[in-house]
């Protein structure tokens, strides 16, 4: 305390450049320069600048040091550790939350991947089933068509055979009728019906009607 006062007194003299000295009960060394005491008193009493009134320096410095020490102790013992703890807590909470968020994001990404995979599988399965069904239907259809074709061919052949038969029988009966008519005609005209000549005539005439 005492050394501080001394120091301040010398600083004050340096700063102000004033020919004055501390008039202070606590600074007996000031008595070295008591010849300037009057000047200091003059400065204090007359209309000097209050800042240069060295008689109050001791008082100001004493209370300043008290205040600074109190403030320093309170701040360094209470405030600084408390705020540092709060800030590091917050930092911890923030990093924890960020890590949790990152984890959740990872999980979401995995879930999405799984969903995508399931979707793709379902789609390919569906395509497979569709293709299979289509193939089955196609096969059945082809089988049915083939069957129908065969039936149609069989029926056609049958019908053609019958038509040929009918045509042949119609030829035969037309030939018989023509022969009979020809023979009857020849006989009624007084001729002798030669069966071979009639057939030959018939054949030559009917060529073109009967295939």
């Amino acid at each position: 305390m005492f050394s501080l006062l001394q120091e301040a007194a010398t600083t004050a003299v340096e700063i102000t450049g004033e020919e004055a000295v501390v008039i202070d009960e606590t600074a007996p060394h000031a008595a070295d320069a008591h010849t300037y005491g009057d000047a200091a008193h003059y400065a204090a009493e007359s209309a000097g600048l209050p800042q240069l009134d060295v008689t109050t320096f001791g008082n100001q410095i004493f209370w300043l040091v008290v205040t600074l020490v109190v403030l320093y102790l309170v701040l360094s013992r209470v405030a600084v550790p408390r705020i540092a703890a709060v800030l590091s807590d917050r930092q911890g909470a923030l990093t924890g939350d960020l890590m949790a968020a990152e984890e959740f994001k990872q999980k979401a990404r995995e879930a999405e991947a799984a969903y995508d995979k399931a979707l793709a599988e379902a789609r390919s399965e569906a395509q497979r089933i569709v293709a299979q069904n289509r193939a089955e239907i196609q096969a059945e259809l082809e089988r049915a068509i083939a069957k129908a074709d065969a039936e149609i061919a069989a029926r056609t052949a049958e019908s053609e055979a019958r038509i040929r038969e009918i045509r042949a029988s119609a030829d035969q009966s037309a030939r018989e009728v023509a022969r009979d008519v020809t023979a009857a005609l020849v006989e009624s005209l007084g001729g002798t019906a030669d069966a071979a000549a009639i057939d030959a005539a018939l054949d030559s005439r009917m060529k073109g009607f009967v295939q």
Partner: peptide, 18 residues
């Protein structure tokens, strides 16, 4: 009188500052 220990307006405002 203002001695080194006297509470003054400086003291008051120093304490308010703190």
């Amino acid at each position: 009188t203002v001695a080194w220990y006297t509470p003054t307006n400086v003291t008051l405002w120093l304490f308010l500052t703190a």
